[in-house]
Design a protein around this nucleic acid. Structure first.
Lengths: 351, 351
DNA sequence: GTGAAAGCGCTAACAT
DNA sequence: ATGTTAGCGCTTTCAC
């Protein structure tokens, strides 16, 4: 194939000329929904001409006067946590299916986040999905002030009147506590993440509430915070495993920290899971099901969460975005790191 | 904070009025490089006015007449492979630092990839980075025909005259073979990925070439292909571990399949690694260093690869993008899944 | 050095 | 139902 010169794209004028209609007719032929009045035969003539020139409307020009692009911004937290990779994939697939593309914004370590966010918004994005804990409040406010639909994904900021999709973190934490109690565990450890992260707090809260209600004394619950990373979990897990009165059950508010803790407990400390310490996580990332971990954890209905988040953006409607709070149920998946007390409870056998 | 009404952004006209200059002066004040002629004092007046109105140029309007946006497209393969999450993160960080944003394109399962790619390109992206194996040839051609700079990241298509950054896959495969030979291994298995993926073929080729040169008979090398996923590796690893003449050394062309194979070998088959079967991977994703795996693997210089890829895009220069082939060295990292033959070889102790 | 003016390719009134 | 016209906010000649 000879290297053809950069061919300039055909414009609506070219198509109009070829089809023998006005330029605006071309615009109408391509306007989504078929809303504007155009006769079907004309439309077909235009589309034929367009096909011949392999024309498609220039989205840049389009968004210059509509004020909306076909772009949705995704503000990402830490991609070392596989959860966010999976989230990104789902969002991208779904939005692409709706004719939208994802513009990614990774929160920079340095403080120039604000400038970069401005740049993202200046693409006249149709909506913003926030999955990062850092800066999310101010970012959300910036967007809302500009009238851009915002959805908080798995983070909840009570003071902020923004749409939000999350799962029932509190109930999930409670379910772990109940499972541990049923397993006869009497000494507990709780590994939380960032203190500002509401998800972490809610999960921890649900766990402690159930234990407290069951009469467990606060002295029997060790609580520690660590970074939401494998290494964070590793270090914290090692420390917990070494503590004087070693906990029998460890609840980590994130799968990734749970995996770090498990590796420390087994390989650094030489203890067995669940015999010496039972471990539970939260999130059910792909890795948790692996034979190396078999982590008992709370499955988040990610598919549903993504779909709800996209819905709340109200991309195709004329109506403003919905400031709705969606809370979805989680599902305790028993694997080997914390075994189900009775045979009838749900288990997962997949490798 | 009262919900303020969606405030409309200030335009260059507003700034011009406030600064007492013409609109074109504002444009010049913001033009990158300071290339166009504008007196420094004027520039300062404009910038001050801009700050007051918190103005920044509208990139949509800008790209409508420059024909280039501040957007780079990233075509992503499978995000279940953690490698790509890490790649995405680095690209986004680097490009954001250069004032660019990443537009993500995930290759859809269905056949409408072409339409979606068209849409991506129609944003007048300044460059395209291709990390997906699927369709990459046709996609690259589409871009090149339109004069959009393309960089193939970790995939090489000889028939395609496109810029390309990859690591020395062949040498890496050879290094594994040598390490296995030095460890006294005499029966080998090779787990390849997609037959179309050049990276996979090169790694496998390097491995086999060294073995052959060392006089290993082809009969002592079992070769199998599997999907480049954890599950693919698990299934294939199990089959290999069960084979009549069990291999003593297993080279998987990707870390993720190596981890799957390791889990099958240890937890499904009850064999020991490396005593019964030594395993090596390729890539050195974060997970490979974990205590659960301690996978001996080839470290790709991801940071350098990303930087080179961005450079080849020639974003800031007037010159067209460079159709250069960059091949970077890989580094065999010894961990416990395949031990170094002599104490002096490089090892990695990190948890 | 600075301003005026002509578009970039499209959408959305406004006519007809 | 179709064509005409006026912008969207900017960059870029072209005069001065």
């Amino acid at each position: 194939m000879p290297r053809s010169r950069p061919q300039k794209r055909a414009t609506s004028h070219d198509v109009a000329a070829l089809a023998g209609v006005s330029q605006s007719a071309v615009s109408r032929a391509f306007s989504p929904g078929g809303h504007p009045l155009i006769a079907e035969p004309t439309r077909q003539r235009v589309l034929a001409a367009a096909r011949e020139l392999s024309y498609s409307p220039n989205p840049i020009a389009r968004s210059l006067n509509t004020g909306r692009s076909a772009i949705v911004a995704l503000i990402l937290g830490d991609l070392a946590n596989p959860f966010y990779g999976q989230v990104l994939q789902r969002f991208s697939d779904v939005l692409q299916g709706m004719g939208r593309q994802l513009l990614v914004f990774t929160v920079p370590a340095r403080a120039d986040a604000d400038e970069a966010l401005r740049r993202v918004l200046s693409f006249q994005v149709e909506g913003v999905i926030i999955t990062a804990a850092q800066l999310s409040t101010s970012m959300a406010r910036t967007c809302m002030d500009r009238g851009i639909p915002v959805v908080m994904f798995n983070r909840y900021i009570p003071s902020l009147d923004a749409a939000c999709v999350r799962c029932d973190n509190h109930a999930g934490g409670g379910a772990v506590a109940r499972a541990m109690l049923a397993a006869g565990i009497d000494r507990f450890a709780l590994l939380t993440g960032d203190a500002q992260a509401t998800a972490s707090n809610e999960r921890a809260g649900g766990f402690k509430d159930v234990l407290r209600a069951a009469g467990v004394s606060p002295g029997a619950i060790i609580e520690r915070a660590c970074p939401t990373t494998y290494e964070g979990g590793f270090v914290a897990g090692r420390a917990l495993g070494r503590s004087r009165r070693r906990p029998r059950g460890l609840f980590c508010v994130t799968d990734i920290t749970a995996m770090g803790a498990m590796d420390a407990i087994r390989f650094d400390l030489g203890l067995r899971i669940p015999e010496d310490i039972a471990v539970a996580g939260f999130g059910d990332v792909l890795e948790s099901a692996r034979a190396s971990y078999r982590l008992t954890t709370l499955r988040q209905p990610m598919e549903a969460m993504v779909l709800h988040a996209v819905r709340l953006l109200s991309l195709d409607e004329r109506t403003p975005s919905v400031r709705e709070q969606v809370v979805l149920p989680v599902d305790l998946i028993f694997r080997e790191s914390l075994v189900a007390p009775v045979a009838s409870m749900r288990t997962d056998q997949a490798g």
